[in-house]
Design a protein around this nucleic acid. Structure first.
Lengths: 228, 228
DNA sequence: TGTACATCAGTGAACGCGCGTTCACTGATGTAC
DNA sequence: TGTACATCAGTGAACGCGCGTTCACTGATGTAC
């Protein structure tokens, strides 16, 4: 590995600073991110940004990718910190980490999980990072199944759903029973719903003890899944 | 009731047409609704819109209110069409109606439930219409409890959650056990999550049989709540 | 039934602002010999 | 070690566009007598 030249290091630093400033703008302007505003904040002329990002969409994409990865890291780290056989503990730690990251980075959460930005199409390479949180959750179920602590629900799925989920499982968790995968996805949906409701103001004037409410709701979900 | 004058009727028609055109724009531009674009589409000069709406935010508010009411109507009507004692049928009909409305009006759904519009603060009078879908869902649980078909979960809630929910119940469903209310809210959260995932593209390449998937997932939720 | 006046809808121009992107340019930093 | 050339970062002006909102105005529709 060649040591990066001074110029390369300065350049990397600049790219980074642009992202930091852009993230700050996301917080106030939502996805209406303005290149000119970012340039102003950095004390540059607006066209200078184009030395680092070929267009506004590319900057947005970079922010989205980083955000997915930050969230993915948070969730995976939280899961990894719990004893492997404590399935419920792992599940709840992962959920808690996702919520904590979202509360700490509300604008980025909205960028990822809010309404799609009009005129912006997410490029292919966001798919993998975006999948990390749900894969972590379902991974917990797979582990539980592997060591016998978790038994798959014995219900039957409607055939088309079974096929869809079997295909999905084949890619990531070969052999995982579809009914269990369905419950994992229910959990992931619920987690997203809980965080979004809290962040987008649906709990205002409704629930004031947010932490405890979240814990209770994720506990309900863990029950549904059958986590010991 | 006095018959409205011709001028008043024409005026009402105009207000309506503005909203119709504005709704069409929502579909392509998201919440970046442009007064000038609406005026152009109607063949008027942009300032003419101000005869009908004092500002862009007022137009947005009107659209939001109407959307909440349309969704509320859809959900309540669907619930009302099912036999009162068929709790599970009512629950699922209400969920199905919410999804159907959202799929038919994706831009308006995003306006209501997507990321908050930067710089726009929802006025007080959106609160009541916004509450209609969850109130319908919880109303089903109350009915079930009243006629004995549904028994409240016997779990204990953490004290702060119990207090929050007791306060909430006092306003709308006096005497409803908090643990049941918590499950109702879990169902509402799940419903919102399912619809958002589908509409915002999270199911692309993951689940292709959307109807059946939705049915299965709402069925899971009905199980968790204990709906017979 | 007709006239005088008030109300209202819509016009067109303007204000002041912001945006993404391109382009020719200067001056500094790096590279090859 | 020094020089010649290539690369790169940042500038400043410009293009062409869009926006919300205000204001004085014309002309038509309604109302009171």
């Amino acid at each position: 590995m060649v040591a990066p030249s001074l110029r390369a290091r300065v350049r990397a630093g600049m790219i980074n600073e642009i992202k930091v400033v852009a993230r700050r703008h996301l917080a106030t302007d939502g996805a209406n991110l303005s290149l000119r505003a970012v340039a102003r904040d950095m004390g540059m002329v607006s066209s200078a940004i184009y030395r680092y990002f070929p267009s506004r969409d590319d900057l947005l994409t970079a922010l989205i990718l980083e955000a997915y990865d930050a969230l993915g890291d948070a969730v995976e780290t939280a899961d990894a910190a719990v004893a492997r056989d404590d399935l419920r503990g792992r599940w709840r730690a992962a959920c808690r980490a996702a919520r904590a990251w979202a509360l700490a980075n509300p604008a980025e959460y909205a960028l990822l999980y809010g309404s799609p930005v009009p005129g912006y199409a997410a490029p292919e390479d966001t798919v993998a990072p975006a999948a990390r949180p749900p894969l972590t959750l379902v991974g917990i179920l797979r582990d539980g199944l592997a060591d016998g602590r978790l038994s798959p629900p014995d219900e039957d799925l409607p055939e088309p759903v079974r096929t869809d989920l079997a295909e999905l499982a084949a890619g990531y968790f070969p052999g995982l029973p579809e009914a269990l995968l369905a419950r994992g996805m229910a959990g992931w949906t619920q987690l997203f719903g809980l965080i979004s409701f809290e962040l987008f103001g649906r709990l205002n004037g409704v629930v004031s003890h947010r932490d405890e409410y979240f814990e209770h709701q994720t506990g309900l979900m863990a029950d549904l899944i059958g986590l010991p």
